[in-house]
Computed example of a mutant assay.
Amino acid sequence: MNEKDLILKLRTGSVSAYKELYERWISRLYAFIYHYVKSEAVTDDIIQETFIRIWVNHESLNPDCSFKSYLFTISYHLLLKELRRQLKNPLLEEYIEYQDQISTSVDGIEDDFDLERFRMLLIQAKHKLSPRQREIFELNKEQNVSVSDIAIQLSISEQVVRNQLSAALKIIRSELKNYTLLLAIFLLNF
């Protein structure tokens, strides 16, 4: 059965359609979430909450829209919420402090949490963006201006803003791939 038919059945409350969608997407969703949280328990919690939300909202699912996008958007927001929660965890602060102590030890072990190097690399990465991408990235991620406000300010459509922001984030992530945690913190804080 194709996905559109499954969604139509799910809208009517079909448990079998729900289970089939779950089976189709669980492994990819698990890999996506686990990649960021590195915890089976947290990954399981996010997946469970994602599918609970799908069930709770099953009557409003749109069979003409991408189920994958809907599923991963829910997971992504739950993942961000979890990462924000973890950032406020004192154990994470202690770990970063511990890493900082290690990096300044005689061994000279390179520290993944080197904020000054991260800032320098972020500046270099932003130079790889087009002028428009850089402007939109800085407005949205550094000045916390909404997509709609950027569109109005620059006299362009919201979709253009989203496209430019998406392209900019792809370049930034690629350039800062060795600093994924700091980049996540940076993007969450703005």
Results as ranks from 00 to 15, higher is better:
Ser155Asp: 15
His127Ser: 14
Val147Asp: 02
Lys141Ile: 08
Ser130Lys: 01
Gln153Val: 00
Leu139Phe: 04
Pro131Ser: 11
Lys128Ile: 00
Lys141Arg: 15
Glu138His: 13
Lys141Asp: 13
Ile156Cys: 13
Lys141Pro: 00
Ile156Trp: 07
Lys126Glu: 12
Asn144Asp: 12
Gln143Pro: 05
Val145Ile: 14
Ile156Phe: 02
Glu142Lys: 15
Ile152Cys: 06
Asn140Trp: 08
Pro131Gly: 01
Ile150Ser: 05
Arg134Gln: 14
Ser130Phe: 04
Gln143Met: 06
Arg134Glu: 09
Gln143Cys: 05
Lys128Asn: 10
Ser146Asn: 03
Glu138Pro: 02
Ile156Tyr: 06
Ser130Ile: 03
Arg132Lys: 10
His127Leu: 11
Ile150Glu: 03
His127Ile: 01
Ile152Val: 07
Glu142Ala: 11
Glu142Ile: 10
Ser146Pro: 06
Gln153Met: 11
Pro131Lys: 11
Gln153Ala: 04
Lys126Leu: 15
Lys126Pro: 08
Ser146Asp: 01
Ser130Pro: 04
Pro131Val: 00
Leu129Glu: 09
Phe137Glu: 08
Leu139Cys: 05
Pro131Ile: 03
Val145Ala: 01
Lys126Ala: 10
His127Lys: 15
Ser148Thr: 13
Ile152Asn: 08
Pro131Thr: 10
Val145Gln: 04
Arg134Thr: 09
Ile152Leu: 12
Ser155Pro: 05
Ser130Ala: 05
Phe137Gln: 11
Phe137Gly: 09
Ser146Met: 08
Leu154Lys: 14
Glu138Ala: 12
Lys141Gly: 01
Val145Tyr: 00
Asn144Gly: 08
Glu138Tyr: 11
Phe137Cys: 10
Asn140Asp: 06
Gln153Leu: 14
Ser130Gly: 07
Gln143Ala: 10
Gln133Leu: 08
Leu129Thr: 07
Gln143Tyr: 06
Val145Met: 10
Asn140Phe: 11
Lys128Asp: 08
Ile156Asp: 03
Arg132Trp: 01
Lys128Tyr: 02
Ala151Asn: 06
Lys128Pro: 04
Val147His: 07
Ser148Arg: 13
